[in-house]
Computed example of a mutant assay.
Amino acid sequence: MERLRVDRQLEEALAHGPDPLHLAAVFGLDPKTAIRYAENARTLLTAAAEGQSPTDGPHEK
């Protein structure tokens, strides 16, 4: 159940942009938690835009 909740929150951050205020309002998250989800979403979105896996380093492809 916990994994489903985490996935849903990250999916929301990816779909609506990495906005911690939006995440806090929609899910009632603590500000620090909302910021963490937003940062993770931003990392994933940036990696996707650059065409690399989020776990790849800058010189790995």
Results as ranks from 00 to 15, higher is better:
Ala49Val: 00
Ala48Pro: 01
Arg3Ile: 13
Asp30Gln: 14
Pro58Val: 00
Gly51Gln: 03
Gly28Lys: 04
Ser53Arg: 04
Glu39Arg: 14
Gln52Gly: 03
Tyr37Gly: 10
Ala25Tyr: 01
Ala38Trp: 02
Gly28Ile: 03
Ala48Ile: 01
Phe27Pro: 07
Leu23Glu: 06
Glu2Phe: 14
Thr33Ser: 14
Gly57Leu: 12
Leu23Asn: 03
Thr46Arg: 09
Thr43Arg: 14
Leu29Trp: 05
Gly57Glu: 10
Leu29Val: 04
Lys32Pro: 05
Pro54Ser: 08
Glu60Phe: 03
Leu10Phe: 11
His16Ala: 12
Ala24Tyr: 02
Gly17Gln: 10
Leu23Val: 09
Leu14Gln: 04
Leu23Cys: 10
Glu12Tyr: 14
Asp7Asn: 08
His22Leu: 15
Asp7Val: 05
Ala41Met: 05
Val6Ile: 12
Gly51Asp: 03
Gly17Lys: 06
Thr33Phe: 01
Ala24Glu: 11
Pro20Trp: 08
Glu60Gln: 11
Glu2Met: 12
Arg42Asn: 12
Gly51Ile: 01
Pro31Gly: 02
Thr55Val: 11
Leu21Thr: 11
Asp30Ala: 15
Leu29Glu: 03
Pro31His: 04
Glu60Gly: 00
His16Ile: 01
Ala47Phe: 01
Leu10Ile: 13
Gly17Glu: 07
Gln52Pro: 00
Pro20Val: 02
Ala13Gln: 06
Thr55Lys: 03
Pro18Thr: 05
Val6Ser: 06
Pro54Asn: 08
Ala34Gln: 05
Tyr37Arg: 12
Ile35Gln: 14
Ser53Glu: 00
Gln9Asn: 05
His16Asp: 04
Leu4Lys: 10
Asp19Ile: 03
Arg36Ser: 15
Glu50Phe: 06
Ala15Gln: 15
Asp30Glu: 15
Val6Asp: 11
Gly17Val: 07
Ala34Glu: 03
Asp19Leu: 09
Tyr37Asn: 05
Val26Tyr: 06
Met1His: 11
Ala49Asn: 08
Ala41Ile: 02
Thr43Phe: 01
Arg8Ile: 08
Gln52Leu: 02
Glu11His: 10
Ala34Tyr: 04
Gln9His: 06
Pro54Gly: 06
Pro31Thr: 07
